[in-house]
Amino acid sequence: MTFQKACVVSVSVVALIASAAPSFAQTDLNALYEAAKGEGQLTVIALPHDWCGYGAVIDGFKAKYPGITVNELNPDAGSADEIEAIKANKDNKGEGAPDVIDVGLPFGPSAKADGLIQPYKVSTWDSIPADAKDADGYWYGDYYGVMAFLVNSDLVAKAPTSWAELTGADYANQVALAGDPRASAQAIQSVYAAGLANGAKTAEDAANLGLKFFGDVQSKGNFVPVIGKAASLAQGTTPIVIAWDYNALAWRDGFAGNPKAEVIVPSDAVLAGVYVQAISAFAPHPNAAKLWMEYLYSDEGQLGWLKGYCHPIRFNDLAQNGKVPQELLAALPPAEAYAKAVFPTVDDQNAAKAIITKDWDSVVGANVQ
Rank of each mutant, 00 (worst) to 15 (best):
158 K>Q: 13
160 P>M: 02
262 E>V: 14
188 I>L: 10
269 A>Q: 02
222 N>P: 08
229 K>Y: 09
181 P>T: 06
161 T>Q: 13
226 V>I: 09
254 G>E: 10
202 T>W: 05
188 I>K: 12
270 V>K: 13
221 G>Y: 11
236 G>F: 13
145 G>T: 11
180 D>H: 10
209 L>F: 13
147 M>E: 07
190 S>A: 13
150 L>T: 04
181 P>G: 04
180 D>M: 04
204 E>G: 06
185 A>R: 06
196 L>K: 07
177 L>H: 05
247 N>L: 14
158 K>G: 08
148 A>I: 05
150 L>M: 07
216 D>H: 15
219 S>I: 11
176 A>Q: 06
226 V>H: 12
170 D>G: 15
138 Y>N: 11
230 A>K: 12
194 A>C: 05
258 N>W: 08
213 F>T: 06
197 A>W: 02
169 A>V: 15
242 I>Y: 02
182 R>P: 03
174 Q>R: 15
163 W>T: 04
257 G>C: 09
159 A>N: 08
232 S>Y: 00
214 F>K: 02
178 A>E: 05
217 V>C: 05
236 G>Q: 07
170 D>E: 14
219 S>P: 09
172 A>K: 15
190 S>E: 07
171 Y>R: 13
152 N>L: 10
223 F>I: 01
241 V>P: 02
219 S>T: 14
170 D>R: 14
220 K>R: 15
191 V>C: 06
153 S>C: 14
207 A>T: 00
203 A>R: 04
141 G>Y: 12
158 K>N: 14
207 A>D: 01
184 S>W: 02
151 V>E: 11
222 N>R: 06
148 A>R: 10
239 P>F: 09
215 G>D: 04
143 Y>N: 09
240 I>K: 12
258 N>G: 09
191 V>Q: 04
214 F>Q: 00
181 P>S: 03
186 Q>Y: 14
266 P>D: 03
190 S>V: 04
219 S>G: 09
232 S>W: 00
266 P>M: 05
210 G>F: 04
162 S>N: 12
141 G>C: 10
245 D>M: 10
